[in-house]
Design a protein around this nucleic acid. Structure first.
Length: 272
DNA sequence: CTTGTGCCCTGACCGC
DNA sequence: TGCGGTCAGGGCACAA
């Protein structure tokens, strides 16, 4: 599942391939994958324009065009962005293709579950998206938390509060910061917010360095898996031994999501 | 305003 | 070998 680190890797790989190039062809094989704008209108907006920047904000991948506006690529759960030879066979669930001038490869969007989307945005970031998780300062995080009762695990997943964190990095950072996932955000001290942001940065930077977390679907633009999942301490490790305290990692269900945590390390002290 | 729930969707996996 | 059930969850609409 692509979260901030995985999208960052894709953006970095895409940048040298598409930046400065003019879009010569855009194929939308599945018009309902386009959100908030008609598919043919989106195509019109992009065609013939030059990509001046490839950006990542939160979990969104943005292609900025020379005459304004951006193509917003969201990968959802199972989305992939692949760079392939134009002659390569299309894999199942390919929903869109971008072809640039003077290039022998094309960019393809593949997404079996179709939780991702293509859209058109104007401005720095999509509407309702909070500050990027690698940019947000602990003081700002604390300000957004104050007076609220939402559990910290849910808050970290709320893209309006901070953008880019999904379940994997929320669980890992809370574990590293030794914070109970059920803690009400309003009860967190500035010290805890600082520690949490520090650990969030640590795990996400480390993930970027090791190629991201491949659980089931994520691969980079060349189809390569990432290796950060090998370093997960709690995510996907229910009933395994915690390396820090020797207790067992637990999994709690909340809504449709699994929260992985170590009761010994994260629940002994403060509680909500 | 806040917080919680259910839905969209496919493929992998599990037990029979 | 197949077949039904369960699970994964980002982002959004909607309920309380």
């Amino acid at each position: 599942m692509p979260e901030l680190p995985e999208v960052e890797i894709i953006a970095n790989q895409l940048r040298p391939i598409v930046e400065g190039r003019v879009l010569a062809e855009m194929l939308v094989l599945r018009p309902d994958y386009i959100k908030g704008i008609a598919a043919d209108h989106l195509t019109t907006q992009c065609m013939g324009h030059r990509v001046i920047a490839v950006r990542r904000v939160g979990k969104a991948l943005l292609l900025d065009w020379d005459e304004g506006g951006s193509l917003c690529i969201r990968l959802g759960m199972s989305g992939r962005v692949l760079v392939e030879k134009k002659t390569a066979e299309l894999v199942k669930h390919t929903h869109w293709i971008l072809r640039f001038d003077t290039s022998d490869v094309e960019i393809r969007g593949v997404d079996p579950r179709r939780f991702g989307s293509l859209s058109w945005i104007v401005g720095e970031k999509p509407a309702n998206m909070g500050t990027d998780a690698l940019v947000l300062k602990p003081e700002e995080l604390m300000a957004r938390f104050s007076g609220r009762k939402m559990p910290i695990h849910s808050a970290l997943l709320d893209q309006r509060i901070l953008a880019g964190v999904g379940n994997i990095y929320a669980c890992e950072a809370l574990y590293k910061a030794q914070i109970d996932p059920a803690t009400s955000t309003g009860l967190l001290s500035l010290e805890e917010c600082c520690l949490l942001m520090e650990k969030l940065h640590d795990v996400m930077k480390r993930s970027i360095a090791t190629g991201g977390s491949t659980i089931a679907d994520y691969v980079d633009v060349g189809g390569n898996m990432g290796h950060f999942a090998d370093e997960h301490c709690v995510y996907g490790r229910e009933n395994q031994v915690c390396p820090k305290c020797g207790g067992l990692i637990k999994r709690a269900r909340k809504g449709g999501r699994s929260i992985y945590y170590c009761p010994g390390c994260q629940c002994s002290g403060s509680k909500a």
